[in-house]
Design a protein around this nucleic acid. Structure first.
Lengths: 216, 216
DNA sequence: CTAATGTTGTGAACGATTTCACAAGCACGG
DNA sequence: CCGTGCTTGTGAAATCGTTCACAACATTAG
């Protein structure tokens, strides 16, 4: 029942909730109906206490002596993560990364629908990708408003990324997923994640160099 | 001088070191020669104390009253992160994501060279991508050994990801960057990063749903 | 109904990371 | 050469996240 409470949930907890959800889907496919925190922990390379603590931040979803109902916990996690609705996503940038993201099935599967694609390249504007037509990024604000976009995915060159982010924010979008290799600045009320593939490689380079592992 | 010391560096610190390096490159392009922890912190949405603490884990690189030399700190960070050498990378999976990653300029720029691309699709095997020829993933272990691959990037379907990871590990590769939407298991001595684009979107969904921001 | 078994939910202990606060050090001007 | 101003490097304190340990409770068997 704690969903309405204003509590600060850590980034690690949110990541783990996503993971738990995936694992629950796996277990469901295998026909498992009930699951203990111990089993969930084993699948996710974490501890049973961690699983229970994460969940307890939001309420009490298990049955003592039994564990968790896979079906129920799955639907609870979907609700907690806000995945019980369809999010309207704009993809900005129709280059290589943009097109790979567009085709990425995992997004759709999880309720993220790319409702519009934008680019500045005249050769691309107007082209059809599946059921969407590439829009001119010139009219970005108008398009994002008209399409009631919730989340913008930025797959634009690094030089343009901050400028595009500013425009996206101006258009009232509250969440941005950035694939350009830079750290963007947005107002605090806008949610932002920078995905930096090079930084992931650099973390591996560091691990190889120092002999430190990367995992927990 | 503390580079040889076996100290446990946190994931957050490593991520920030990568960020600092990028910022230093930006500042260098603008002709800045000297930088205070305060300025670096502002660019990276962190605090000056955090910057100094991060750096102090490895040694003492600044001048009191003056700040840091951009050139020197940049080269120090490159060395700390292991970017003062060329890493040999194998790209496994020549689908949409694989091809986007292959073309991703930021990797090359940072010393990661994709020396081989592998796939199982007979239509792709043998094709040239720039200067590399797509190899048959059948002979994965042999290719990775022959090419002295340091890091493997997995851009394969989720069903195959764990199996491919196992083979990559068998071939002696010590670091894996996984783009398949699953959490892989590898021996502790192998460095692994799972990049989950859907999980990033889910974090945004959570932020939008709860009103929590995502940033610090 | 009672006992035995198993697993949750959670306060408390622990550990890690971040922030604070300030002495120490360097550059510059007078 | 000394004082002023600025910035680092770093212990100490505060905060945040994880692990421990166990009472509370559900289920099942007898």
């Amino acid at each position: 029942m704690g969903t309405g409470v204003a509590r600060k949930i850590s980034e690690s907890t949110v990541r783990r909730l996503s993971l738990y959800l995936r694992f629950l889907e796996e277990f469901e496919e295998q026909g498992t109906e009930t699951l203990s925190s111990e089993e969930l922990a084993r699948r996710g390379s974490t501890t049973a206490a961690q699983v229970r603590k994460d969940l307890s931040l939001f309420g009490s979803f298990g049955k003592r002596g039994l564990g968790y109902s896979v079906r129920e916990l799955k639907s609870t996690l979907r609700r907690l993560l806000g995945l019980d609705r369809a999010w309207r996503v704009a993809l900005i940038g129709a280059g290589r990364i943009g097109s790979a993201l567009f085709a990425y099935g995992d997004f759709r599967r999880r309720g993220f629908t790319i409702v519009t694609v934008l680019d500045t390249d005249p050769d691309k504007i107007g082209a059809r990708w599946g059921s969407v037509r590439i829009q001119d990024a010139e009219g970005l604000e108008e398009v994002l408003r008209r399409e009631s976009v919730d989340i913008a995915i930025l797959a634009v060159p690094v030089e343009e990324a901050q400028r595009v982010a500013d425009r996206v924010v101006d258009a009232g979008v509250q969440a941005v997923l950035n694939f350009a290799p830079t750290q963007l600045h947005v107002p605090t009320e806008v949610a932002l994640r920078d995905v930096s593939m090079s930084m992931e490689l650099e973390a591996l380079s560091f691990a190889l160099t120092t002999g430190n592992g990367t995992g927990p």
